[in-house]
């Protein structure tokens, strides 16, 4: 599968973010996007997920449903990790045990029924990652997914992402150049 962006143009006021930008993202290899703050990484994600409307564009093969880890976690704070994940799933037959298994893979144990408001920042981040990966989408957008995670949990999350995104188009926005090797990814500089 391949998501193709052609001749993308977007400006906010006078500031041009994309000027005839074209790129393609394949499911064969993860793509890491790097660039300075304000270079358009999050804007590209928002355009792919239809949250931002570009001035002109041609985008091919974008699935209707997208798994997105936003820069902020965007969780329903009063509800459990399981509920947060469950409401994002289109396949309603996924069991609580299955979700718990995924949460265990990223180092979250025995707290999956507590409200996420009681979780640390790092735990919330991992719940947001599991939600995006489990959301049955062929396109996964991860906006700085490893932010706020300690080294041990970063390893678990990296392994979880690599193992669970086979045959999916995965785009990761990052500031850390070492992520290219870690994810064995293509680099796209903005």
């Amino acid at each position: 599968m391949e998501v193709i962006v052609k001749n993308l143009n977007k400006k906010f006021g006078e500031k041009i973010i994309f000027n005839n930008f074209s790129a393609s993202f394949s499911s064969d290899k993860i793509t890491c996007i790097m660039g300075e703050s304000g270079s358009g990484k999050t804007t590209l994600f928002n355009i792919l997920s239809s949250l931002t409307i570009p001035d002109s564009y041609e985008i091919l093969n974008v699935p209707k449903k997208i798994g997105y880890v936003f820069q902020e976690n965007r969780l329903c704070e009063n509800f459990s990790a399981i509920t947060n994940i469950k409401i994002a799933l289109s396949n309603k037959t996924v069991s609580d045990e299955e979700i718990e298994k995924n949460l265990n893979s990223v180092g979250i144990y025995d707290v999956s029924k507590k409200p996420v408001s009681k979780f640390s920042g790092g735990m919330k981040r991992r719940v947001a990652i599991v939600r995006a990966i489990m959301s049955d989408s062929d396109l996964i957008l991860l906006d700085e997914p490893l932010n706020g995670l300690d080294e041990e949990n970063q390893k678990k999350v990296i392994e979880y992402i690599i193992n669970n995104t086979k045959n999916k188009v995965v785009i990761i926005s990052t500031h850390d150049i070492s992520n290219i090797d870690t994810f064995n990814a293509n680099l796209l500089k903005l």
């Binding site: 949250l51 209707k64 997208i66 936003f70 329903c76 994002a88 289109s90 939600r131 959301s135």
Partner: peptide, 19 residues
Amino acid sequence: KLLEMAKVFKINNFNKIKY
């Protein structure tokens, strides 16, 4: 931001109201 999340994940109206 939560409403945007709901839009991206195609959360249905009932769950949007509830959660």
